[in-house]
């Protein structure tokens, strides 16, 4: 390659052949360019499991007064998640958040400020919608959140 610095002349008395260097750099550049991908900015949501209510250790108290329970059901016909507080479905995020907040405030006024928001999704509800409800709970500054879980019937086979 002419001008690659491989030949001596008056300007460049000490020739340095940069051709192999460029070849190697090209290879490295190609490798890193091909393996490059833009990473999504990741965050997190804490929803710790209760320390004192492990699996099958305590009976669930069905007599919680003013329970804030959101049930999520997957509608196979409309292909969307139905979010219910009690028996009332809520499509709007704002309405769902407000109804949770109102119930929490009523509980707090009655001295039951420790009553958590319980999220009870069906197994076929997309995780996206569960995270969305968790997000609403966080946005409404509701301090405690729990999942109501039935025993999982899912069996994942052992990989070979």
């Amino acid at each position: 390659m002419a001008g690659g610095g491989g030949e001596a002349n008056a300007d460049n008395p000490l020739p340095l052949n940069v051709v192999p260097l460029i070849d190697v750099i090209f290879c490295l550049l190609l490798f890193f360019m091909c393996s490059f991908h833009f990473k999504t900015l990741e965050g997190k949501m804490d929803a710790w499991l209760p320390q004192d209510k492990g699996n099958n250790k305590t009976q669930v108290d069905n007599k919680i007064i003013g329970e804030v329970r959101i049930t999520l059901e997957w509608d196979r016909v409309q292909l969307k998640t139905l979010r219910k507080f009690g028996r009332t479905p809520y499509d709007s995020d704002e309405e769902l958040g407000q109804v949770m907040r109102d119930q929490f405030d009523r509980n707090k006024a009655n001295g039951n400020g420790e009553v958590p928001v319980i999220i009870q999704p069906n197994t076929d509800v997309p995780w996206l919608d569960v995270i969305h409800v968790m997000d609403i709970v966080h946005q409404k500054n509701l301090p405690k959140m729990e999942f109501a879980l039935a025993k999982s019937e899912l069996v994942i086979p052992e990989p070979h």
Partner: peptide, 19 residues
């Protein structure tokens, strides 16, 4: 968890971690 996964997968994880 991928947002398109059904809840039964994180549910299984929570159960196993709880155990």
């Amino acid at each position: 968890c991928d947002s398109r996964a059904p809840f039964q997968f994180p549910q299984l994880v929570m159960e196993k971690m709880g155990k």
